[in-house]
Design a protein around this nucleic acid. Sequence first.
DNA 1: CCCTTTCTTAACGCGGCTTTCACACGCGTT
DNA 2: AACGCGTGTGAAAGCCGCGTTAAGAAAGGG
Lengths: 229, 229
Amino acid sequence: MKPQILIVEDDPQIRRFLRATLEAEGYRFHEALTAAEGIAQAAARHPDLVLLDLGLPDGSGMDVIREIRGWSQMPIVVVSARGQERDKIEALDRGADDYVAKPFSVGELLARMRAAMRRALPQAGVSAGENFRFGEIEVDLQGRVVRIAGNDVHLTPNEYRLLQVLIQHAGKVVTQRQLLNEVWGPQHTEQAQYLRVYVAQLRRKLERDPARPKHLQTEPGVGYRLIVD
Amino acid sequence: MKPQILIVEDDPQIRRFLRATLEAEGYRFHEALTAAEGIAQAAARHPDLVLLDLGLPDGSGMDVIREIRGWSQMPIVVVSARGQERDKIEALDRGADDYVAKPFSVGELLARMRAAMRRALPQAGVSAGENFRFGEIEVDLQGRVVRIAGNDVHLTPNEYRLLQVLIQHAGKVVTQRQLLNEVWGPQHTEQAQYLRVYVAQLRRKLERDPARPKHLQTEPGVGYRLIVD
DNA sequence: CCCTTTCTTAACGCGGCTTTCACACGCGTT
DNA sequence: AACGCGTGTGAAAGCCGCGTTAAGAAAGGG
């Protein structure tokens, strides 16, 4: 199940931008335009993370933090145009998990969101967790379990690490050297044969038709790429 | 008891600055000048938070994050001169809790440290509860008593300690290093043999069929996991 | 001080994982 | 056509991690 984000933001332009960003990442999300609605939706939907703008019209975003913290430890990442130190300190001390000032980089925002959600997982034993899905394949990154159409698939340590690295760069090409370095260490960046063997093994275990891979594709002369729909 | 901070930083000037800052806040702290020493001290002292500089002389600070995350969830706040986006993303994805780029404001750094430590607190909440149950096994965390189907089972100190750590992370994988660090201390994180012996003993005492464990499962190449129904 | 319990260390078998090799295939070049 | 190159595949061999047992050392209690 993909993480569900609640966006609390009144500026239509920023909202559109966040919407596009989260959509591209595959997150599910809902939007609230006011502080009151933000609190209500946070209570109703139990999102995996709240993206909160501090400059809301009907009251300070600080109230949203205080209100939510009264009954939940859900991750709250503040996104604000105001970069003043005292705003940051107040928001963080009231219980926000992170504070990203505009203008911010998309990659950093997403990384900070991932970090906040990762931390929240252990204590909330109920929540499904940060699973990664592509096609009928589901990877439970916390539990280290891979399921294909619901059935558990056993991966060896190296196979799993290889898949992990590919997931980290999902959609993008990962060079052979990079894969070898991450999985086998810097001493083995020349052993491209390892990759051929293990990519084949992964395909046999994950792909419906290993000879015509749908997800784990070869980039000849460069590396491999994990296709996510 | 005041929080204890571990500073991992080679630059004497920044170290002096951090020292003065933390002292003024009333934090206790220790210092490590290299990555290796930082890892060792993190294991030995169990600080409440690690302040980590990424630009260390004897290897990347990234290794420190990866190493510590192998056996502990302690808060790690990166303090770095490098403010590049990819550094931030990499550090956060490897398990850092926050990333503060120099030049930073003192107040913000302290607020982010407080936020990171506040989040870490609830983790200790498991042992405070009442009895822990899984299957026909019941663990009285107060009385340090284990019963299986009503009958008392005697566990040695190390056996109980090992079970305790697994219960604290029930359902999740606990790495070998983490278990070794929690039960035998930071000096013995390489003695995986201890684990094999004691896991076998625990299984013989707790599992109905020790050869096919239902609760105390092995995660090959990683660690062990306590399955709770 | 002796006896019991617990911890540490070593040895060994087993199974599975990793590594390595051999070879087939597609493709572009000679 | 033949060759080189990068890639995919199957299988064999060796290694390594894990589980198990046992014996000696250390610790603790009478």
